[in-house]
């Protein structure tokens, strides 16, 4: 793989710094009210002031997100296996899945609240509902797009369907799986926070909601930033994991003549 130039490594940081500076300049220059649109400095100050509560709420959100994400992985992989390894299941379930996925997941929250009350459980379930679909689709695609010739080679040797799945289908779908994890973890954050804003007494979503109702806009923005930082860290974690586990997939692409 080609070595990254130093400029590429620093590019996102340069962009970030630029945006922060412009943001601050706009807020100071036009004397924008903190109650409408706080500048970065005000946000940092409120972050320091409320660091204790922010930490607690952030950990709660991290926990509900991760729990929902883990359930999403288990269910997503199982369903992906089911759908990807059998044409019948694919035909039967795929349209249903697409229909289900087109429902806005926020619409589930009131139902979940009726069933489980407000708090942790609806947040976990919303995170799960929103994040398992990309995993299903990717695992199913990885399994379903097996080269027919390769299958012939193995079948001619007397391999069972299960053999083909384990020896070829599973490793082949790994790059798809890891790619979907990166998408799924960020979606899981969305689900957890959406649920917390309407139905929880804890979590960043709740923090932002209550800070908003008290007109503490810098704190609301601080909440946004905390979420995005957590999401980026988790995303990068899975990006690194993907590279380590399935380096053959991308290197294979680069090496092709």
């Amino acid at each position: 793989m080609a070595k990254k130039r130093p400029l590429d490594t620093w590019a996102p940081w340069v962009a970030l710094t630029g945006i922060i500076i412009i943001w601050q300049l706009i807020c100071t220059g036009f004397d924008v009210s903190e109650f409408i649109f706080p500048g970065p400095w005000a946000i940092v100050l409120s972050m320091i002031e409320f660091w204790g509560p922010i930490q607690g709420h952030a950990l709660q959100t991290l926990w509900t997100t991760t729990a929902g994400f883990l359930v999403g992985i288990v269910v997503g992989v199982l369903m992906g296996f089911l759908i990807g390894s059998s044409r019948f299941m694919y035909n039967a379930l795929y349209p249903l899945m697409v229909g289900f996925n087109s429902i806005p997941k926020a619409a589930f929250v009131p139902i979940l609240v009726v069933w489980f009350g407000i708090g942790t459980v609806p947040a976990i379930l919303t995170a799960f509902l929103i994040c398992f679909f990309p995993i299903v689709v990717n695992v199913a695609t990885g399994l379903a797009t097996l080269e027919p010739e390769l299958e012939d080679v193995l079948r001619a040797l007397g391999a069972s369907r299960f053999d083909v799945l384990i020896k070829v289908g599973l490793p082949r779908s790994l790059p798809y799986f890891f790619a979907s994890l990166k998408v799924a973890i960020t979606l899981a954050f969305v689900g957890a926070v959406v649920s917390e804003t309407v139905a929880a007494n804890e979590g960043i979503g709740y923090l932002m909601m209550s800070a908003g109702s008290q007109m503490r806009m810098p704190l609301v923005f601080a909440g946004l930033i905390v979420i995005s930082v957590m999401a980026i860290v988790m995303y990068e974690l899975f990006a690194v994991l993907e590279k380590r586990m399935t380096g053959w997939a991308t290197r294979g692409m680069d090496m092709q003549p």
Binding site: E149, D152, V153, R172, W248
Partner: peptide
Amino acid sequence: KIVGMAFQNATLLPW
């Protein structure tokens, strides 16, 4: 089981 096969594509497993 007494056959071996090879095709135009080498169909080797990249991993």
